[in-house]
């Protein structure tokens, strides 16, 4: 552990890190206490039916910790196990954590990395997502914050995307993708002319971290670096936006304005053009600093209307 302190500023990719590595890098050193950890062996009761291996934490790590000295509850999905998808146990752990956060009046940080519902236990997963959304709204209505961090391998798809939309604030990196229907799902249902899931650049222009940040779908854009996520999370936790009717009225106006302003666009680059980004074609190639400098004056901010 002391190694971390002596290592020079080596960049650790959030995208490449495991759920446990992300938590270790994000939270104050040594402050994390896990709830229902692998020793409890609470595995999925359903995967065996499909002949699939289970994991002792069911692909999600939850617990309490400090973040910049601030007491928080934290959850991290493991995108390498079943694509970070929500099953019965996986989902219930997060439901429990959010309910506990409300009882203890703590903020929550969610390290989302998920393909959505785990199809082998689809109904339980779908319902867990609904329970998570309700628990987030309950927690936020009490005045606590729920911060979402998105930049993992599995992205944030399906019901995971809807959960993201319920968070107080979102921190994303370039590889972070947020959407409801995944690229393959749209292509399968609507054809390759509607959505070419193999065209990676197009996928990122439609649902990638930069596009979400530019349109107000995310609040902070950071490097694919655990240190950058930590700094942004500490800064974000300092704010306070209880969920009220006026927040939702402001969100209503914000989303309506987005449809009016950009609804005719066929591609992310057309949205960026309409925003007033000087050279939209160069956006995907920009590093974080260039990108933030080139867009800060024109991007749509969510302005806490989320």
């Amino acid at each position: 552990m002391s190694q971390a302190a002596t290592t020079t500023q080596r960049r650790v990719s959030w995208f490449e890190a495991t759920a446990r590595q992300r938590l270790a890098a994000l939270l104050d050193p040594g402050s994390f206490t896990e709830f229902l950890g692998p020793a409890a062996r609470e595995i999925s009761p359903h995967l065996a039916l499909f002949g699939l291996p289970a994991q002792f934490d069911d692909g999600i790590v939850i617990g309490q910790a400090k973040l910049g000295g601030h007491e928080v509850f934290a959850a991290a999905q493991e995108g390498r196990f079943m694509g970070g998808a929500f099953g019965e146990v996986h989902g219930a752990k997060l439901v429990g954590l959010l309910r506990a956060a409300k009882a203890a009046s703590r903020d929550a940080v969610l390290l989302l990395d998920t393909g959505g519902v785990r199809l082998q236990e689809a109904n339980a997963g779908e319902l867990a997502i609904s329970e998570i959304i309700r628990a987030i709204v309950d927690l936020r209505a009490e005045g606590n914050s729920v911060i979402g961090l998105i930049g993992g391998r599995a992205g944030c798809f399906g019901g995971g995307g809807i959960i993201a939309g319920c968070c107080t604030r979102l921190i994303v990196s370039e590889p972070g993708r947020i959407s409801v229907s995944g690229p393959e799902v749209i292509e399968t249902n609507r054809g390759v002319e509607e959505f070419d899931s193999q065209d990676r650049a197009f996928v990122w222009r439609t649902m990638g971290g930069k596009h979400r940040y530019l349109t107000g779908g995310a609040d902070c854009f950071v490097d694919d670096d655990t240190t950058a996520f930590r700094a942004a999370a500490i800064e974000t936790l300092a704010g306070r936006t209880p969920l009220t009717v006026s927040v939702l009225e402001a969100e209503q106006a914000r989303l309506k304005a987005r449809l009016k302003r950009f609804g005719a666009a066929k591609d992310g680059s057309e949205v960026w053009q309409a925003l007033g980004v000087t050279n939209p074609a160069s956006v995907p190639g920009m590093d974080t600093e260039e990108f933030l400098n080139a867009t800060k004056a024109v991007r749509e901010s969510a302005d806490d209307a989320r």
Binding site: I133, R190, F195, G217, L243, V245, E251
Partner: peptide, 29 residues
């Protein structure tokens, strides 16, 4: 949900989340 380029480009996740939040907050009210 409608599966399309337009919907995802506009941020369908925020729109669906917004509707869910409105219903849940209405209940809280």
């Amino acid at each position: 949900q409608r599966m399309s380029r337009h919907d995802e480009l506009m941020g369908l996740n925020e729109f669906l989340a917004h509707l869910a939040k409105c219903l849940l907050l209405a209940a809280a009210q």
